[in-house]
Amino acid sequence: MSKLLNGLKRGIITENPILVLVLGMCPTLATTSSMATAVGMGVAATIVLICSNIFVSLLRKIIPDKVRIAAYIVVIATFVTIVEMALHAFVPSLYDALGLFLPLIVVNCIILGRAEAYASKNNVLDSAIDGLSMGIGFTFSLLIVATIRELLGGGTLFAGSWFGIESEGITVFSKPALMMSLVPGGFLTLGFVLGMAQFLRTRSAKKKEEKEADSQ
C-alpha cells in the first residue's frame, strides 16, 4: 500500500512525466482541445503503459541488451494495436476522436522511457505500480491543460462524448476564443501550465531551504 502511495506521489508530483520531465508533447498538445478526449487519451496510454511495463519487466532477463529498444517497441506496438482494436469495437466515438493519435501512442516517449528507465530494472509488481502512477500523472496533466483550453476555447466544461456517453456539459460563457482550442492555443496553454509548475517547484524548494536555515 505504501508502495502504491509512493508511486502515485512520484507519478503525479515529483516525477510527473509532462510537468517535470517534459516528455510526450504531441498527445499533450493534440488531444487536449476537450476534456473528454484528454481523459480518453490518458486512459488509453495508461493501459498501454501498465501492460508494457509488466511485459518488459517479465522479459527483462531474456531480452539481450543490444536489441532491447527494438524489443520494447515491439511490445509497446502490440499493446497499442490491442487497445486500438478494442476501442474501434467498443467505443467507436473515442476511436474517431483520437484518430491518428491512437496508433501514435507507440512513439509516446513516456512509455518507452518508463520501459527503459524503470521496468527493465525492477520486478513485475513494482513496474505495474510505476506504470499506473505514471499513467495517472500523465492523465492528470492532460486534464489540467484540457480544462483551460476547453473553458477558453469552447466556453464549456465536461462537454463531448465520454467513452461513448454523450454529455451536454456546463456552458460557462457563450462567446469563446476559438483560437485557444486550435494549435496556437495548445502551445500557449501548455507553456503557461509548465511555467506555473516551474514557479510552484522553485517556490517550494525555496521554502524548504528557509525552513532548514531557520532550524539551524
Partner: peptide
C-alpha cells in the same frame, strides 16, 4: 519561472 520550455512554447504559439 518562464525560462526554458515555457518561453519556447510561447514562441512556438
Amino acid at each position: 519561472c518562464y525560462k526554458g520550455f515555457p518561453l519556447t512554447l510561447t514562441a512556438a504559439a
